[in-house]
Design a protein around this nucleic acid. Structure first.
Length: 523
RNA sequence: GGCGGAGUAGCUCAGCUGGCUAGAGCAGAGGAAUCAUAAUCCUUGUGUCGGGGGUUCGAGUCCCUCCUUCGCUACCA
């Protein structure tokens, strides 16, 4: 038995300082869809997310709430775990940076970089506020009386030099540029690759990678006065999941990761720092950094002052998980920023899900129930129209793979819905309700073809709207082990005579509530 | 300031290395049908392809210039 190819995909790791928001939900859903897609396409998939639980802000927030940093981390981790469950986007593993396995991995990669001569002790100079216990950039400072400088908080700052370990990032400038050139798909979409290259070409300076002004972090090996700063700590999380530094575990085969799915704000860390660390540690570099955009509520960034903050739980409950997943993945061109609004969500879920796909299933399956004894009808001799629509359905895996290769999830869905639309046209032009009176055998054939097209469509929609797709496959009596992309072919078509369960609507229409009722996306 | 995107029908956008009368979805208008979640199907657009200039037999598609807009320009997760 040949081993299935492996595929390792991750989300970024949210900072455990606050509750999940729409952006986290979007990233989790998209990554889940990618993971499901690869799984259905025969890959051995590892889907990992994590939590970034260290750092000064964690200490500060915890202190404000009167709890320990670990308690804050636990609380937030629980919220994110629940989000994953609610969105039907549960990961295989959640690596928390406070876990012992992660400290082990972080210290191992650190040690390796030390051995390679890429880490050295120096001074980290900057404007420091004792009251805030934080460094501030020159540009952040306000000028106080008598030409003194003040922190944004108004606290006085002083020029200090903190001892810090540095990573020799400057030594990797040329190596990184060479790597980008040799691996043109390393950063997608293209626009972010250009930004990264431009950044690196401007020149890299060494990176401060430890702190001694706080202690909530992974201790630096051999120097307990320091903890690792966010860079090494957070990024190593991806490695931790594979069992590093133990290269003999079952998980080890998943490194290097195939795709790190991240938001555009952290591109630099993943596309520059991370590969440099890995080069230093002589570890393979991830295949791709997949960058997605931000979501805006009616063109505006979510903010408490605008009053348009909506949490993902509310949205999922109001519209349903699959409609929400479908909307995000279909409406937003992956990689670009997107907008959401109550109207846009309702339009998508009603037009695409309820009307196009849901109604096609309903109208065809109910005819089968009423006129064909509730069994898959005979296909008969296929007409050209039958063959055409079936061929379109069977071509979907290739079309979807092509789109997913570039992480164009919205294109994959567009291809699938093109067939949904064609199937509606097919159904309308074949008029099985007329044939019922004039040519019952032909009616049966039309319904069989339509059901078969639905089978293939439902298999293909599983990554994006898993729950509803599963229900549709149930209605078609497709066995649980016959739902992979490999089964999207004529060889696996529905068997005439198979009894079908009673039909039931899969995609409910969204009906507007009374005026004044709450509309989450409108806030 | 520097670098890089973008500006195409009311809306969201496709239009690869230049070539038939510039497209899709949604929204709008008219019609058909009644199997179906009043869901579907058909028909329907006089769009200065941001402005101007240029190259070419021919340019959203190449060059120049101007306007508008967005992103990046490192130690914040």
């Amino acid at each position: 038995m040949t081993a299935r190819p492996s595929f390792y995909v991750t989300t970024a790791i949210p900072y455990a300082n606050g509750a999940p928001h729409i952006g986290h939900a979007y990233e989790r859903i998209a990554t889940d869809a990618i993971a499901r897609f690869k799984r259905l396409d025969g890959f051995d998939v590892l889907f990992v997310t994590g939590m970034d639980e260290h750092g000064q802000k964690m200490q500060q927030t915890a202190a404000r709430d009167g709890i320990t940093p670990q308690a804050l981390a636990d609380r937030t981790a629980e919220q994110f775990a629940r989000m994953g469950d609610v969105l039907n986007a549960r990961a295989d593993d959640i690596v928390r940076t406070t876990q012992p396995r992660h400290a082990k991995a972080s210290q191992a990669i650190w040690q390796k970089m030390v051995e390679r001569g890429d880490i050295y002790l120096s001074k980290y100079p900057g404007w420091y506020s004792v009251r805030d216990e934080a460094f501030f950039d020159e540009s952040e400072l306000k000028s106080g009386p008598n030409g003194t400088k003040l922190a944004p908080t108004g606290a006085p700052v002083e020029w200090v030099e903190e001892e810090s370990y540095y990573f020799r990032l400057s030594a990797y400038q040329d190596k990184l540029l060479a790597y980008y050139k040799a691996n043109p798909d390393f950063i997608v979409p293209e626009t972010y690759k250009r930004e990264v290259i431009a950044f690196v070409e401007r020149g890299l300076t060494d990176l401060s990678i430890s702190r001694s002004t706080f202690n909530w972090g992974v201790p630096v090996p051999g120097d307990e006065r320091h903890v690792m700063y966010v860079w090494v700590d957070a990024l190593t999380n991806y490695l931790t999941a594979t069992g590093y530094p133990d290269m003999t575990t079952e998980r080890a085969k998943f490194w290097p990761a195939d795709a790190h799915v991240i938001g555009k704000d952290i591109t630099r860390f993943h596309a520059i720092f991370w590969p440099a660390f890995l080069m230093s540690a002589e570890l393979p570099i991830p295949k791709q950094i997949v960058v997605h955009g931000f979501l805006f509520n009616r063109g505006e960034k979510m903010s408490k002052s605008v009053g348009n903050v909506i949490d993902p739980f509310t949205l999922a409950e109001h519209y349903g998980v699959d409609p929400l997943r479908y909307f995000f993945l279909r409406e937003v061109p992956f990689g670009q920023d997107g907008n959401y609004s109550h109207e846009a969500i309702v339009n998508r879920m009603n037009a695409d899900l309820a009307n196009d796909l849901g109604n096609l299933a309903q109208r065809s399956l109910s005819m089968i129930a009423k006129n064909c004894g509730g069994q898959v009808p005979d296909f008969g001799a296929l007409t050209d129209a039958d063959k055409a629509i079936l061929a379109d359905a069977y071509a979907l895996p290739d079309k979807a793979r092509a789109a997913m290769k570039d992480y164009a999830l919205h294109h994959a869905l567009a291809e699938i819905w093109r067939v949904v639309a064609d199937a509606n046209r097919y159904f309308a032009s074949e008029e099985p309700w007329i044939k019922r009176k004039t040519d019952e055998a032909r009616m049966a054939n039309i319904l069989a073809v339509t059901a078969e097209v639905l089978r293939n469509i439902a298999i293909m929609t599983q990554p994006f709207i898993p729950d509803a797709s599963g229900k549709l496959l149930d209605l078609l009596a497709v066995a649980g082990d016959a739902r992979s992309f490999a089964q999207v072919s004529e060889a696996h078509r529905l068997t005439p005579g198979t009894a079908l369960p009673p039909t039931a609507p899969i995609f409910p229409r969204y009906v507007e509530a009374e005026e004044g009722a709450a509309k989450p996306a409108k806030a």
